[in-house]
Design a protein around this nucleic acid. Structure first.
Lengths: 267, 267
DNA sequence: GCTTGACCCTGTCGCAACGTCAACGTCTTC
DNA sequence: GAAGACGTTGACGTTGCGACAGGGTCAAGC
């Protein structure tokens, strides 16, 4: 038998056969004078065994081990752990599919800020179209980001805080006003006279639990979230980038708003 | 923000970030005088979006397309076909796991000739331990091979034929006798006087439907199985290798047995 | 001023299981 | 003697990074 016949007999390509030779799975057969490999029935049997194993999902290295150990016994072990592995993969795929279906079935879960959870999509929908307000767009991006980076148990708190802050039509209207005022500060300095008013309106929108000092961690990736030191200002890291992304007037308004809100909480 | 901070914020490695740069998924940010990349909030947002997409199972190329198209619309299409793809993967894994469990739960399905179906394992078990007979061992290997290479609809016929030929204790005993006689011919020539007797006993074991002229195709991989020409003897291909693997006396006995069996069928 | 350690840079190899040329020899057949 | 189907070795491409190698840069402590 030559290589093509062997390959046909077992239903693989000649490339595969040669690959198995190269990997030491299938012994190299005798060669004819012209260099052609000549296979025997033994090779067909072994190749078919290799295929049965690979089709179960074993890697070639595992197949080699199984073949070398010349015993059916620890094949069982390999298959057991393979089953565990496949179970994990299956679970992973199912979870992905579940999320996929949730995304596809939820109206509004797919737009520009990328896929978000059904819950967040609902909150976004409640705010209506915000494409006219850069601040609102940025905010939605931030929320999408936070949702995906925050630990699962904190995620629920985040969503609760948002529902708290956007639950009523009046709250939504307040939020829109705040966004509008901040948008107006797009090229204002920190000392702009409009800053104070924007800060006051914004403070009225900040839901409890979203202040950086407590509740939901605003700095994804900071892990256990130990206090980031006193007066962690705008120097570095995520919060730094957050503030750096705002115009000076906007940043100032936000800082003031947070101060107002946290004073309100203390009282 | 520097690359490590960005990576921490989104929960990936710096290597991943650089990889995304290289693949054009994430735009290269400004560089500091020392060559360090300095990221902004925009990059965090985009990186998080990339992650959300990859975690759904999208490939980087698809993510790039989705990001470039700057629309949520055909994201839905991509996700739809991704779902189809995942469904196929999930089905494949489930089937493998089903086969795995069948193997692990079937006593005797794993020994030396490799994993075989539960049905075939049962037939093997019915024959008892054959490790003392090279012919029987070879035969089992052949059957394992055939089972795995034959088309599914022919497989049932093969198993039926085997059950037919090994169904009764007497049939099994006959088979053992035939194996023993063939084993004795291991180094006999084609003209050995014992050949005729072995052929007669063997002919009594051959189940109908296993003769090469009809029924189950003995040549796996020959596909539609058009007649392999007149007098397809021992020249080439699978059947050639099959006969080449026997000692001359054995091959002759088998040939005679098949002739006897097919004469018996014609009458 | 020097070391140490924690960062950053670019570039390359490795991984799994083959597919896919490339460039060439060989066998058969018309 | 030329075509067409086969065989040979060898090398690169695929996916999403991990793991080096072989360097700079920067802050802190001696």
């Amino acid at each position: 038998m030559r290589i093509g016949e062997l390959a046909d007999a077992v239903g693989v390509t000649t490339r595969t056969v040669r690959h198995y030779h190269h990997q030491g799975l299938l012994p190299e057969p005798e060669r004819l004078a012209n260099g052609y490999r000549t296979y025997t029935l033994r090779h067909v049997v072994v190749l078919a065994r290799i295929r049965r194993l690979t089709e179960l999902g074993l890697g070639l290295a595992e197949v080699r081990d199984v073949l070398a150990d010349e015993a059916g016994k620890d094949l069982a072990e390999v298959l057991e752990e393979l089953d565990v592995d496949l179970a994990r993969q299956e679970a992973a795929i199912r979870e992905r599919r579940a999320r996929l279906r949730a995304l596809l079935e939820t109206e509004g879960a797919l737009p520009p800020e990328g896929p978000v959870s059904a819950e967040l999509a609902e909150l976004f929908a409640g705010m209506g179209d915000v494409s006219g307000s850069p601040m609102a767009v940025r905010d939605r991006e931030m929320l999408a980001l936070l949702e995906s980076t925050v630990a699962p148990e904190e995620r629920e708190g985040l969503l609760a805080a948002l529902r708290d802050g956007l639950g009523s039509p009046e709250a939504v209207a307040r939020a829109h006003r705040a966004y509008a005022l901040l948008d107006e500060l797009a090229d204002a300095g920190a000392d702009d006279p409009r800053v104070a008013r924007a800060a006051r309106v914004l403070a009225g929108c900040l839901p409890e639990g979203l202040l950086p000092e407590e509740g939901v961690v605003l700095d994804p990736g900071s892990g256990s979230g130990s206090g980031s030191g006193p007066g962690s200002g705008s120097g570095s890291g995520f919060l730094g980038a957050l503030y750096a992304d705002f115009a000076p007037g906007q940043a100032e308004a936000i800082r003031q708003a947070m101060e107002i809100a946290s004073r309100g909480r203390r009282s």
